[in-house]
Design a protein around this nucleic acid. Structure first.
Ligand SMILES: NC(=O)c1ccc[n+]([C@@H]2O[C@H](COP(=O)([O-])OP(=O)(O)OC[C@H]3O[C@@H](n4cnc5c(N)ncnc54)[C@H](O)[C@@H]3O)[C@@H](O)[C@H]2O)c1
Ligand SMILES: NC(=O)c1ccc[n+]([C@@H]2O[C@H](COP(=O)([O-])OP(=O)(O)OC[C@H]3O[C@@H](n4cnc5c(N)ncnc54)[C@H](O)[C@@H]3O)[C@@H](O)[C@H]2O)c1
Lengths: 209, 209
DNA sequence: CTAACTTTGTGAAATCCATCACGTTTTTTG
DNA sequence: CAAAAAACGTGATGGATTTCACAAAGTTAG
């Protein structure tokens, strides 16, 4: 879809969060919501919420707030909730298995459709309803997924990444501590759990609240 | 330690990453490193690295770069690597079990020392060397850990959080989709995997690189 | 219908951060 | 030793994001 673009990245990152809470409100039967209420729920300043929403035009009504159903429909369209993004997971170990067992679809338009591992004992099984294939068959069996979750040992990360990129993957969620290299057309989001834990500890010691 | 403070938060978040790579270099026997080399490894602009380091004074030498050992010692002190931060994990399910089996200590000064769950079949067992206690015994058995990892179902998150806070926890790494409320003296880092996946998909569709 | 109240949408200001660009210092080479 | 090269540390700049604060518009109550 040719979009109007110009949504700040910081705003774009909050959209899925907004979507989830608006969906909750809808399921609870709430008809309207103010930026202040939403702020309490998602812990984002109410002015920031109004600013975020304003990039999409005037979604609310002064003195009233936002109509929950209208907002929900808007977000559903904007986040392409009707169109599922198919995802591949590489590395069915501790972390990979947890993800396979988790139903990301609950309030999400993404779905892991295939997993890969080098361990022959896993190949051929199904975990959380997702078939596990051998990493050697990556190119053959990954279909045309455009997003991959990387949960392999860190030494394997770059090699697998190169194959994924070669195969046309354009987004990678990388859980390994390795900082992988990709061409500029590929987007990588790092989630580095050790760093998160360590930086939390650092903040506690050095930034007393 | 009375600090000089004023390290930007963005810099503080990168420190553990720097530490890990500098440690690798040290183990590889490298004696010196430039901001450019470090930049290639951690994928952070070299000017940003120099700026980050400069907040701590002049750590490098012009025309030479940084002495690896000196840098490592500096970071070890700054990140309190010698002092282990003890962590409790609440919710030994898919995700919690993966964390318990992972040895965070590898290049990290944080350690999960106790876990809690409501499931009687788990209580009393040991996973990844960490004993699992009953959630009812939280107050009694958590010792004086100051950081907790939350991997319980989202409906339980707020209740457990209140107990943790009451018990003196000052940092929480929250993996549940719930946005928890805490007093201003407690720091919460949210890691919301669904949001990460969904926002990656959104970026791919709307922000082609 | 009016007055009081609520809440949006947005200029403007404030913050925070990343990057450029270069003077300076040190190393390296010849 | 002199010239060239390397690389730091940082002033300046610009961009992105957050937050303030308020007029305008709508709602609610009496
Ligand atoms: N488990 C955690 O809590 C945790 C925390 C932080 C970071 N990580 C990182 O996440 C990654 C996975 O961690 P884990 O604990 O699940 O490890 P794990 O060892 O349990 O799982 C790794 C899996 O990858 C498979 N594998 C190995 N080489 C492969 C290859 N070439 N192709 C395909 N599959 C291959 C292995 O068979 C195994 O099943 C690691 O990089 C780890 O550093 C994990
Ligand atoms: N697994 C994933 O990949 C994934 C991804 C995104 C988010 N999450 C979130 O992480 C959290 C945990 O996910 P999971 O897949 O590990 O769930 P899970 O159901 O496998 O594990 C939850 C664990 O918490 C325990 N528990 C329940 N109530 C408790 C209580 N009051 N006190 C202590 N323990 C209690 C359960 O016994 C269970 O062992 C959930 O909030 C989930 O939404 C998980």
């Amino acid at each position: 879809m040719g979009d109007e673009m110009k949504i700040p990245q910081a705003t774009a990152k909050r959209l899925p969060l907004y979507y989830r809470f608006i969906n909750n409100l809808y399921l609870q039967g709430k008809l309207r919501v103010s930026s202040k209420e939403l702020s309490d729920a998602v812990k984002v300043d109410s002015a920031t919420i109004r600013r975020d929403f304003s990039y999409f035009g005037a979604l609310g009504k002064k003195g009233y707030g936002y109509n929950v159903e209208h907002l929900l429909q808007f977000f559903r369209r904007t986040l392409d909730q009707d169109e599922t993004t198919e995802v591949a997971l590489i590395g069915v170990g501790n972390l990979g298995t947890a993800f396979l067992n988790y139903n990301f679809m609950k309030n999400n338009n993404t779905k892991i459709v295939v997993a890969f591992d080098a361990n022959d004992r896993l190949v051929g099984t199904e975990i959380g309803g997702v078939p596990v294939a051998h990493i050697d068959d990556l190119e053959e069996k990954m279909g045309n997924v455009s997003v991959a979750i990387l949960t392999v040992p860190s030494q394997e990360a770059q090699g697998i990444t190169d194959r994924l990129v070669e195969r046309g993957v354009s987004g990678i969620l990388n859980f390994t501590p390795a900082r992988i290299s990709v061409p500029p057309t590929v987007r990588v989001h790092h989630i580095d759990l050790s760093v998160e834990l360590q930086s939390l500890a650092y903040f506690l010691k050095h930034y007393p609240l």
